[in-house]
């Protein structure tokens, strides 16, 4: 491809003590692309995702996000304002209302005025379908609602890339779809997304590329239909047989 990738990951290694968590990962993600990463637990998929906005430091290799190399403190903060992240445990701020959760970083990082930040927050809450919860506290919301607020909170910073770290794994089954629907809409709007998830249905519907990681390496990458229906590698087949029922 001729285009510049918006995320460029080159030969990234990461050790946790003696554990070699990432073993030379190479990956390019292009603007508007939706990439889903699957793999057994401990395969390094979350670690890789967390390296992209440097919540995790890596020991070797390089990562360039939107032309900014992740090497200095200023660059890391610059990248973080471009990259939104959604966590498995939502990580909403429990001492703030939903509206304040979405406005806080807008105010102190983006330096937006209160009225402007609140207008943006309300618009995003309408987009994720829960404007009526603006003045509630996170503890008063269901898991699915909390995760939708977390997505709105990340979107309020106008990120160019959204990272999702197992966004539905902590949810009760009946709440998974409402979160996936928000993510699907986001994908259709052309947001660049890297999603660590085992939601095969979402991957089939939204992803341009699916990636299987195991033992800190990318084993196989292909369009989701091909990866899920005709995997080339034995390890992919073994993993899918456990995930697909």
């Amino acid at each position: 491809m001729e285009r510049e990738p918006i995320i460029h990951i080159e030969n990234v290694h990461k050790w946790f003590g003696h554990v070699h968590a990432l073993r030379g990962v190479n990956l390019d993600v292009y603007k508007g692309e939706v990439v889903v990463i699957i793999g057994p637990s401990g395969s390094g998929k979350s670690t890789l995702l967390r390296c992209i906005n440097r919540l995790e430091e890596f020991d070797e290799g390089k990562i360039i996000v939107d032309g900014i190399p992740l090497d200095s403190a200023e660059n890391i903060n610059a990248v973080r304002t471009e990259v939104g992240m959604v966590f498995q445990q939502f990580n909403l701020f429990p001492h703030l209302t939903v509206l304040e959760n979405i406005c806080l970083a807008q105010r102190i990082v983006r330096k937006r005025k209160k009225e402007e930040a609140e207008a943006i927050a309300m618009e995003l809450l309408r987009k994720v379908g829960i404007p009526e919860k603006a003045h509630n506290y996170p503890a008063q919301l269901s898991g699915g609602q909390q995760q939708r607020v977390a997505i709105a909170r990340a979107l309020a910073m106008n990120p160019k890339i959204m990272l999702f770290d197992e966004p539905t794994s902590a949810l009760d089954p009946e709440m998974i779809q409402e979160v996936l629907d928000v993510m699907l809409n986001l994908a259709r709007e052309g947001m660049t997304m890297v999603v660590v998830s085992h939601e095969i249905g979402f991957a089939r519907a939204a992803a341009h590329r699916a990636i299987l990681m195991d033992e800190g390496q990318i084993i196989e990458e292909a369009p989701p239909d091909i990866l899920f229906n005709n995997p080339r590698h034995e390890r992919t087949r073994a993993f899918l047989s456990k995930v697909l029922h």
Binding site: R80, V83, N91
Partner: peptide, 9 residues
């Protein structure tokens, strides 16, 4: 982590 990922120092 959530605060840092939103760009806060």
């Amino acid at each position: 982590e959530a605060a840092r990922s939103l760009g806060m120092s």
